[in-house]
């Protein structure tokens, strides 16, 4: 008996130890309640973008999201800080009183057409990460969801990128060392849905008998143009932005090359001068001159924007691809319907 009670104690200690080693986060398990709450909040305020906090538990490789609460949308940025902090604290305290898990595990936000890759998102991630080791961001797209898909994604930042971002190492040199490229910024985490048995029973009971649901109608809608147009429009915009970013980089490299050339010429001149002074028995002049503009380092533009835009482009392409495939299938279905007709 004594042995059996000692064994779990050891495993507890072991468990605590292994926790230190950190299991990679594999799944985000979201409760039906949190899911519906996110959808409700995001949809009610669409096309305005909203955010909210996710509450839950961090268990090994699974992050459970059991509840959430919305943040109020504030018109002015100024009053943000204090008010929203008190709001958060109040809400969490109140939720604890009714036994809701009041452990923050991340936040959710709505997006329009999947345009969520931004510097703000990364900054928010870092802010959260300061307090919570593991946090996720759940992104919900009400626009795409109205086509009959559950457009929900869980994201987190990849470790190496976060380090590089914190150390401001998103320059050519730093990136070459760490080998980070644009797909290494965000990591999508698998989402699974969990419901309590009670909820399961309830939904089974209230589920109507109707053979068709709204989602079916949404999915069969043949109008594809607006969505595609918007997507392509954004895609083109992104392309322009990317072109600008590239120009910035090019400009930088050209400036650096020019500076190097100047520096070389100056050094050559100085050396010749020094050689002449040496011959005349004088002290040589230093081979560096901080006052000379040729020695002033040119600030290197960050690659972050370019990376984010590339991510965004890839995202739009993926969306167009998925949607296009679906539309083609739909068109063939329509063709078949017509033929039978």
């Amino acid at each position: 008996m004594a042995e059996s009670s000692a064994a779990p104690a050891r495993t507890w200690a072991q468990a605590a130890q292994t926790k230190e080693e950190e299991v990679p986060l594999r799944t985000v398990q979201i409760d039906g309640l949190a899911l519906l709450k996110i959808i409700k909040h995001c949809k009610e305020f669409a096309p305005n973008l909203v955010t909210g906090q996710l509450l839950g538990l961090d268990i090994g490789s699974v992050l459970e999201v059991t509840n959430c609460f919305p943040f109020p949308t504030r018109s002015e940025e100024e009053e943000d800080g204090e008010d929203s902090a008190t709001y958060q604290l109040e809400m969490m305290r109140s939720l604890r009183e009714v036994n809701v898990d009041n452990n923050t595990v991340g936040w959710y936000q709505s997006t329009y057409m999947g345009a969520y890759q931004s510097v703000e998102l990364i900054d928010t991630f870092l802010q959260y990460q300061e307090n919570i080791k593991r946090c996720v961001c759940i992104i919900y797209d009400p626009q795409r969801s109205s086509q009959g898909v559950l457009a929900l994604k869980a994201l987190k930042l990849k470790e190496p990128f976060m380090e590089a971002y914190k150390n401001d190492a998103l320059t050519g040199e730093g990136l070459r060392q760490s080998g980070i490229s644009w797909p290494d910024i965000f990591e999508e985490i698998k989402v699974s849905v969990h419901n309590s048995a009670l909820v399961g029973a309830m939904v089974t009971d209230i589920q109507p008998e109707a053979p068709v649901t709204h989602a079916d109608f949404d999915r069969l809608s043949l109008s594809s143009a607006p969505f595609l147009e918007k997507n392509l429009e954004f895609l083109i915009q992104c392309m322009d932005d990317l072109g600008q970013e590239q120009q910035k980089q090019q400009y930088y490299y050209r400036a650096v090359t020019r500076q190097e050339a100047q520096k070389g010429a100056w050094l050559l001149k100085r050396r010749a001068e020094n050689a002449a002074r040496k011959a005349a028995g004088e002290e040589p002049l230093p081979e560096e001159d901080s006052a000379n503009p040729a020695f002033k380092p040119i600030p290197e533009p960050s690659r972050l924007d370019g990376f984010l835009i590339t991510n965004q482009i890839s995202n739009y392409c993926g969306q167009v691809n998925g949607f296009g495939g679906q539309s083609l299938s739909k068109m063939y279905v329509m063709d078949a319907v017509h033929e039978e007709h």
Binding site: L150, S192, N195, T213, A215, S329
Partner: peptide, 28 residues
């Protein structure tokens, strides 16, 4: 709203994967 999410997802105690676009269309 529940229909949009899908009753399959809300009914089961555990769904490991969200249905993707093509699967949804196929079912429809």
């Amino acid at each position: 709203e529940a229909e949009r999410v899908g009753f399959e997802v809300l009914k089961e105690t555990q769904t490991d994967r969200l249905p993707n676009e093509i699967e949804g269309l196929e079912a429809t």
